[in-house]
């Protein structure tokens, strides 16, 4: 876990005065600006409808900004969407809609096949990724037979196999039971320690806040707070987000995983 001052390192991602309007004229994101540096772990907090998902889709190049500019390593992302999506992966809220392969192996191979990598290289990299996520023994399983936590790991493996620099996670803990959420949290911590930049959009900040080095709070499509989580944690409830239990009792947010009893 690293807290990085956005002004200290050269930014990986630059978001400058970005707005997004729906075709019916409604605004989902309004004049949003921030930088993301390599190795950051950012919680993008906000209540439902605050614009978190739209912002993630803009960062991945799935949506085009109505105004403003998003640059990855200095280059506008909309001019090179293939390059963007190789380096900025996105895990959707519902893994069932993200998993497109008929088996665990086939789903993980989907991205490298799109990159037109040679078959031998695909086999090698898919096996390595599945093994690293503990999914190697399930490679021939049908995704619909996996548990919620396993599906989420599979969705992540489909992204990791493309060796991204940034991973965007939309509500990563939704529909996960306690072991599933704890396993995912440990995995995210490991990935971040490995140098991958993470941006997790969630309204359930309790699980993740102690891992993150920075928290961006959104409300009505705008950024209302940006900085170290400890600075803004007590202001969460005024934006419709539940304040972590420890913080309510005047303590520092605890490690959500290590607090559990192990069998």
């Amino acid at each position: 876990m690293v807290f990085t001052d956005p002004n200290r390192l050269p930014p990986l991602l630059q978001v400058e005065h970005v707005s997004h309007h729906y075709p019916d004229g409604g605004t989902s994101v309004s004049n949003v600006s921030f930088n993301v540096c390599k190795g950051e772990f950012i919680v993008l907090a906000g209540a439902n409808g605050s614009g978190k998902t739209t912002l993630l889709r803009l960062l991945n190049g799935l949506l085009h900004p109505s105004a403003g500019d998003i640059r990855y390593r200095g280059k506008p992302i909309i001019k090179n969407p293939e390059h963007t999506r190789k380096h900025i992966g996105m895990v959707f809220q519902d893994p069932d809609t993200q998993i497109v392969g008929e088996t665990v192996f086939d789903d993980t191979a989907f991205g490298p096949e799109n990159l037109k990598l040679p078959r031998e290289e695909i086999d090698k990299t898919v096996h390595a990724t599945l093994d690293s996520l503990g999914l190697g023994h399930m490679k021939d399983r049908c995704p619909s037979t996996l548990s919620g936590g396993e599906k989420r790991r599979l969705a992540l493996s489909g992204i990791l196999v493309m060796h991204p620099e940034i991973i965007l996670l939309d509500e990563p803990f939704s529909n996960l039971d306690y072991p599933g959420a704890a396993g995912l949290l440990q995995l995210l911590e490991f990935l971040n320690r490995d140098g991958i930049t993470l941006i997790a959009a969630t309204h359930d900040v309790e699980k993740i806040i102690d891992k993150a080095g920075r928290m961006i709070i959104m409300q009505n499509g705008t950024i209302v707070a940006d900085g170290p989580p400890s600075l803004h944690v007590q202001a969460l409830e005024q934006y419709g987000i539940r304040e972590p239990c420890a913080s309510r009792y005047g303590m520092k947010p605890a490690d959500w995983v290590n607090g559990r009893k192990r069998p």
């Binding site: 959707f92 809609t97 497109v100 990598l117 040679p118 695909i122």
Partner: peptide, 23 residues
């Protein structure tokens, strides 16, 4: 709705028809 989400997810993973052929 699922189809819509899946199309977006496929685009996010760089879907292209010019893909690696099966062997």
């Amino acid at each position: 709705r699922t189809a819509d989400q899946t199309a977006l997810a496929m685009a996010a993973r760089g879907f292209s028809e010019d893909r690696t052929d099966p062997s």
